[in-house]
Design a protein around this nucleic acid. Structure first.
Lengths: 252, 252
DNA sequence: CTACATCGGCGTACGTTGTACTAGTAGTAC
DNA sequence: GTACTACTAGTACAACGTACGCCGATGTAG
């Protein structure tokens, strides 16, 4: 992802060079503002150009393609996702927890960024580098061999991405339009009546399945609690491995 | 997601009704074949219609929109992701592990399915229901209260999605075209020279950063091992919670 | 068998998208 | 001033999703 770089190189301008009217950062910021305000689908080349008061094709002197622009936007998100450097705890669990929470918050604020991760390389831009550096700093105190450190970092990143994608962004039953609910309820009843879903049937009971579902979902822990709990479990597991690993290397 | 249903209701055809030439399942299968062979971007309404030997607009008698077709494709994936019913272990850890591994394999085979999760509701189609039922069966033996069961299930789903998205699908350094490598290496060197990346510098050393990076990535555990390890950690954490929970309820 | 009613099939067309091509313009160095 | 070149941008095109509306096949009624 060469294009993840902040600016095209022009430290020594060629003779007769003309100063660009925009920076890549400006363009990314404009695209980001549109995405935040109207959704990622509203980000078209024409739209971004208009927002910048430029001709559409002018953008193509700053980005190679639309996915290039997208990579720029991703990197801007990676900046937002950085933890203020001084606030990073020396304790690796606290530090990783802080990083994870901040990352989740950023991705929830910009849902398209999560979905785009697999499309473009995520580790390319300079701010992604910084994020990685922060993660390295966080796990520095674990005493783990380097491969295990990287593994731990990746695991946290994976967990955050998965949680946001599946738990935070996946539309819940509340997103179902009211007029569609009866049809879905009938469909659910029909499926359950087949007898192929014993556990689901037990879960939802015999009465108003719709109300039962809402009740169960409403009574459980909040997403925040669930996120924290899952993270704690991962860190617990890692801590176990770490103490085992340290005990082993001390024994040697 | 009303449209997740397998067929439009026409048990009692209207007088003079004509029998449809296709089923929604056939259309989904055709779209899926294209997606697998040429990528999700190759799935256009025209392309799918051509594959079915139909006019483009004919599809719109079976699906309301393209995203509707997409939902159908998603549900087809959910079918592939089901564990053969009899092979589900009674041990909750084994059962969840089997489900997770199968899910990962399916998503890796069909990368677009992961990315689409947040776009359309994931829990809508009939096969998604079955997947949920299987998960419920898997955690039946935990003795957990229902809310915690659901939490555990969601946690596994989240982990799988995150791992596939970030670790399996994210293009690694090997995806970088050879001609771009020197430029990126130079950029990396430049960034490191700023001194803002002490841990990263330590990690990559002073010599050929590119080779160092490749060496580290190559020496670590394989993705399969990493997936299994993370899963084990999650389950370890959950097992700890379970034994605590059981001890507490026994004490009462 | 004929006539009718109905709905599946699909050709045409429109607005929108990303972006290739190309010509023009304006800022900088001499 | 002159020349160079990078920046700017208009036009154009292929491909997309899909609204609209006609046609004809097909099952039912008589």
């Amino acid at each position: 992802m060469l294009s993840g770089m902040p600016e095209p190189v022009w430290a020594r301008p060629d003779p007769g060079a003309r100063r660009p009217r925009y920076t890549r950062a400006q363009i990314a910021a404009a695209a980001l503002a549109i995405a935040d305000a109207e959704g990622i689908d509203a980000v078209t080349m024409r739209r971004v150009a208009t927002a910048l008061d430029a001709g559409t094709m002018t953008l193509y002197h700053y980005v190679r393609s639309k996915s290039d622009l997208f990579a720029l936007m991703q990197d801007a998100i990676m900046e937002e996702l950085l933890v203020p450097p001084d606030s990073l705890s020396a304790d690796w669990r606290e530090a990783l927890t802080a990083i994870a929470h901040r990352a989740r918050a950023s991705f929830v604020r910009h849902p398209w960024a999560v979905r785009g991760i697999a499309t473009d390389g995520g580790a390319a831009g300079p701010h992604a580098l910084r994020h990685f550096e922060q993660s390295l700093a966080a796990v520095a105190g674990t005493g783990l061999p380097i491969a295990d450190k990287l593994d731990l970092i990746a695991m946290i990143d994976d967990y955050v991405a998965g949680f946001v994608l599946k738990s935070d962004l996946e539309p819940g039953p509340e997103a179902i339009p009211a007029e569609a609910a009866p049809a879905i309820a009938a469909y659910l009843d029909e499926q359950l009546r087949t007898g192929d879903y014993p556990h689901l049937t037990e879960l939802l009971g015999d009465g108003d399945r719709w109300a039962a579902l809402a009740g169960i979902l409403g009574s459980g822990p909040t997403p925040d609690e669930r996120f924290a709990r899952g993270l704690r479990r991962l860190l617990d597991g890692a801590a176990g491995d770490i103490s085992r690993s340290n005990a082993q290397s001390a024994r040697r």
